[in-house]
Design a protein around this nucleic acid. Structure first.
Lengths: 348, 348
DNA sequence: ACGTACATAGAAAGCGCTTGCTGTCACGCT
DNA sequence: AGCGTGACAGCAAGCGCTTTCTATGTACGT
């Protein structure tokens, strides 16, 4: 039924071995023979059997990319950049590799299961994006899994994720803490003293780091934080909307709201407007990430730009062994404060 | 080095065949034996070899999802929904399948190459999202490829893509034409007579259909279209920005701008504002798709909501054979006009 | 007590490809 | 003339799993 290597070989009057070598191009084959084989391949419309090839060669051309939420541009942008470097068809890489984007939905179990699935497929490399989950047992399990992947020859790269010591994974970490600090410092510099903070889910490292940066800035300026000023939620617009209403309820005198990321900030803006407050006249709002839409909202969002595409591209290259690993297996990626219209000095 | 089925079998004191059956659970195995095997699997930390299994069973658990641009939420949302239904780990589907999101970047070649790669992997199903490319040779090549995939037992589903007759693929098509028409009719109803249109790339079916809807509406109301009123560009913000400036240059008297999609509309808004025009007081703006951010821009965008998540979910279920195929292999998906603040009657 | 049927387990034959090793020439060197 | 040396091509042994067919009990009916 389906055409196999042997069929091609028969048609080209050569041995299967020769056909295989022509296709893989890693062994000398006479030009005339090669041509004959290629012709047969074409005529028979032969398509290599991936699994068989992977089995025999003990390697595959799959590269896994784990993301928390593929519908979120934060991950989409990174995934896109990683994938462009992985090579996929048309990429600048040599062989054609299949980039597999896996959506964990932020679930620890799915994260692990996907890793197992990738391990099963003998993936050539795996790139994990986004913050990690701060649950000790899960972390141990993840590290063990990563270690196993690395041991099996899979290149593992963490992009925007804290380093996983002892696993052999390469990490490109985002300076969430520094960015958060800079952002809050900007607000303090404008004169704000009562700042609300809408944090992400408690169990994510990204959440903690950004929040720590925020608090560092407050502390550095001798502002004692009111516990009512922090609300936790998800990394989405909806959450920002609700959290803002909650913040306003708790302390209507806030003059600024710092959001866990840009989507959350958008929700915050909506809530503020609906509450009759003007941005930035009455309340300043700041986001994080600098996603493409952040410049389009009105007023444009002050935020911390994370070079998602650049980091993704680099992670992709490292995963493909086309770029040297950073010394020590870790490299920090800094954010850049983008001051725009959504922040200004407080009213009073 | 790596643990194989045979190792597990030896440890559990059974034959490899039995271990395989325990793992696949499709053959009676005594409870006591099963337990022994499972214990051995656990102790040895055995991970099935995907390629080997796929080779022997002549099927794989890979499902491909082709998208034009993974960084664009339009595709991200669909991909996410499809994937949730495909089952991935934790999904409601039975077996664990690996959803492979492939980013074609809108390139015809990559589209084909990815399909070949998926064919190579003997993918269980493939879902293609987004509009198709209107290039006759490419279309023929695509159809042939799809046909081959279908013949090889791969389920092929088109989500938001025109039907591909004779290929055996199931299609869920978006009513871009109807949506475009409704949108423009809304504008005409408000009193607009001079409407600019920022279209997507010429060679995409989505572009043509939306534009046709727009023109149908104009024609139905006896408005003769000025060729200067249409500009083509990409489906992104930047393009919307530039196209709007161009439109304004060509005819400053336009009272409304219809964009190919929401991202383009965002760019249009920015350009208008920078030109000192107010929305919707001076110029109305409308988008298409109703992406999440569209409600957050100010003023909120009038647009046509496409049920991306629902359509994706349905496509995913059909791909998994968990939902009956629509009669005739095609089902239309309608959009819904969302009237918001960015459109109003013309100034004069 | 004996045959029959059912429930399990094993043996073994591939699945389609890669690759180490073994030829076989044709050439050029001494 | 004799032979080392490349350059190719083929043989055949797997890669690790699935699955058909066969074997072995065991329980039951008569």
């Amino acid at each position: 039924m389906t055409v196999t290597l042997a069929d091609v070989a028969a048609r080209a009057q050569v041995s299967p071995a020769t056909v295989s070598r022509v296709l893989n191009g890693n062994y000398p084959v006479a030009a005339s023979t090669r041509e004959r084989v290629l012709k047969a391949v074409d005529e028979l419309d032969y398509v290599l059997n991936g699994p068989a090839s992977a089995l025999a060669a003990a390697t595959s051309d799959l590269v896994g990319i784990l993301v928390n939420d593929i519908a979120d541009p934060f991950f989409g942008i990174m995934a896109s950049a990683i994938q462009a470097e992985i090579g996929g068809p048309g990429g600048r890489a040599g062989g054609e590799r299949l980039a597999v984007v896996c959506n964990t939905g932020g679930s620890p179990e799915r994260e692990l299961t996907y890793l197992t699935l990738l391990q099963r497929q003998r993936a050539a490399a795996v790139v994990l994006t986004g913050g990690a989950i701060e649950d000790a047992p899960h972390r141990v399990a993840m590290d063990a899994k990563l270690r196993k992947l690395v041991d099996a020859g899979t290149r593992v790269v963490l992009c925007g994720r804290p380093q996983a010591p002892e696993t052999g994974a390469i990490a490109l970490t985002f300076d969430n803490r520094g960015g958060g600090q800079e952002l809050t410092e900007h607000l303090i510099g404008l004169g704000h003293r009562r700042l609300g903070y809408i944090a992400g889910p408690l169990e994510r490292t990204t959440t903690r780091h950004r929040l720590e940066g925020h608090r560092d800035a407050l502390a550095a300026h001798g502002i004692s934080e009111d516990p009512r000023w922090t609300v936790h939620g998800r990394y989405d617009r909806r959450s920002g909307y609700e959290a803002t209403l909650e913040l306003l309820r708790r302390d209507p005198s806030l003059t600024a709201v710092v959001a866990a990321n840009d989507s959350v900030a958008l929700g915050a803006c909506a809530a503020l407007r609906e509450s009759g407050l003007r941005i930035p006249d009455d309340v300043s709002v700041a986001g994080f990430d600098d996603l493409p839409f952040s410049i389009d909202v009105v007023p444009a969002l002050t935020t911390v730009r994370l070079p998602l595409a650049e980091a993704g591209a680099r992670a992709g290259r490292i995963a493909m062994g086309r770029e040297e690993e950073p010394p020590g297996g870790v490299a920090g990626v800094r954010g850049e404060l983008m001051v725009r219209g959504s922040t200004a000095g407080p009213r009073d």
